[in-house]
Design a protein around this nucleic acid. Structure first.
Lengths: 139, 139
DNA sequence: GTGATTGCAAATCTTTTGCACTAAA
DNA sequence: TTTAGTGCAAAAGATTTGCAATCAC
């Protein structure tokens, strides 16, 4: 039974240190918003909005920097479902997504619920970095 | 043995008419570039570049309009693999993609080479519009 | 003619960048 | 200190929009 539990905030702090990222006020606050609840799918703009709503002073540029740094550190995964907007997923385990085009909402599909077989080899020893399955729904 | 043959230009013309789109000089020229050879994956900018290189006078805005009209008419499929750039695929049959992140190249994977099973139902009678499988390769 | 289509330039939107200022070690 | 991190405003890149001119029917 896969539980898809979210990454706890404390673990995020550890990874922050392990990645050589200083625990600044902004990064701590954003990590708390991202990792202190359930798994989330957020755009930079959304996270920035939440930060402002929580009285966290942080610039949009820093939100972008932070999202990319967290992604590089393996704490987030960038999800591309929409031309012209990136989403970041706090769930970095093996899984896929429903995408509700009308509302722009993303929903996790546990990896074990999608069986992919027979994916052909990429040519000439190029390793497959990731396989994304996006189930597009109208809602 | 699936052949994945491309849409012939003549068929494109028929669909153009069926979609109620007037066969203007620009649409005919772009359709020729798109459908008169093998299957292709192109961005708006690339198609515009090809048009100019072929001495076809057409504005970038019209290229965007045309790509979207052709997509709405079912003659193209929009492929989203990269935040901030759309690709259009002349192959509208059931298939998936390799995406070479470094070069930005897309490559078809015939639908029968990927077996997807157990995709869960979308909630509450929302029909699945499409399932995209993107195999991300480093090259 | 009449309505669809086009081109152009401006506007929009997301994301990135340059750089002076601030904060962590 | 010394180096990393931040904010701001400007820049960049892709796409869209408004509108007058043009074309297909």
């Amino acid at each position: 039974m896969t539980v898809m539990s979210h990454r706890p905030f404390s673990q995020a702090l550890d990874q922050l240190g392990a990645a050589g990222l200083r625990p600044t006020r902004q990064r701590l606050a954003l990590a708390k918003l991202l990792f202190d609840g359930c798994n989330r799918h957020l755009s930079a703009e959304q996270l920035h909005g939440e930060a402002l709503a929580s009285n966290i002073r942080v610039s949009l540029a820093t939100v972008y920097n932070t999202l990319h740094q967290f992604t590089a550190a393996g704490m987030l995964r960038e999800i591309i479902v929409d031309a012209g907007r990136s989403y970041f997923d706090t769930n970095t385990s093996d899984h896929h997504h429903f995408y509700y085009g009308k509302s722009g909402r993303l929903e996790d599909i546990p990896g074990h619920l999608v069986a992919l077989s027979k994916v052909p080899q990429a040519p000439a020893g190029m390793p497959i970095r990731r396989v994304d399955v996006i189930v597009r729904v109208d809602g």
